[in-house]
Design a protein around this nucleic acid. Structure first.
Length: 131
DNA sequence: AGCCTGACTTTGT
DNA sequence: GACAAAGCCAGGC
């Protein structure tokens, strides 16, 4: 993320995000959406990619998370999993257990690197933000 | 401009 | 169901 046009965002509604989709970089859009994930809920890289209109570019969402930890305000990257609910990105946190601990702190149970009841707490931006 | 790299996903075998 | 292959595309070099 070399672009400096990033601005701090207050709470934004879906329409505002919709509007920003065209004027902000893909990475920034990813961070915007990720920040809207409620506590105790999770989503997937693919869902975010799809919501941003990039269809199959879920890899980019994950790639964007590489820089998530240096973003201001912080991006809750631990709430983003792969489509099976597995904590595939945990090695990119300070310690391999950090991601799981953060999730469990929010009431999300994790076993074998996979979120339990993933389909129940799944937060789909395409649905949740389309009001 | 071109090549490489992915915190992914889908599809085919 | 496990495995491989192929899309995907922004960023860094």
């Amino acid at each position: 993320m070399s672009k400096k046009k990033f601005v701090q965002n207050k709470k934004v509604n879906s329409k505002q995000i919709e509007k920003r989709k065209d004027s902000y970089s893909f990475f920034e859009n990813v961070y915007e959406v990720t920040r809207l994930i409620p506590r105790g809920r999770v989503t997937s890289y693919g869902a975010i990619a799809k919501y941003l209109g990039s269809g199959q570019s879920a890899r980019m969402v994950g790639y964007a998370m590489n820089a998530a930890h240096i973003q201001i305000p912080p991006v809750p990257a631990h709430r983003v999993l792969n489509r099976n609910g597995m904590l595939t990105g945990k090695h990119h946190f300070g310690s391999p257990d950090l991601m799981q601990k953060m999730l469990e702190k929010e009431g999300v149970k994790v076993s074998k690197d996979t979120v339990e009841k993933f389909d129940k707490i799944f937060w789909n931006p395409a649905i949740e933000l389309s009001i």
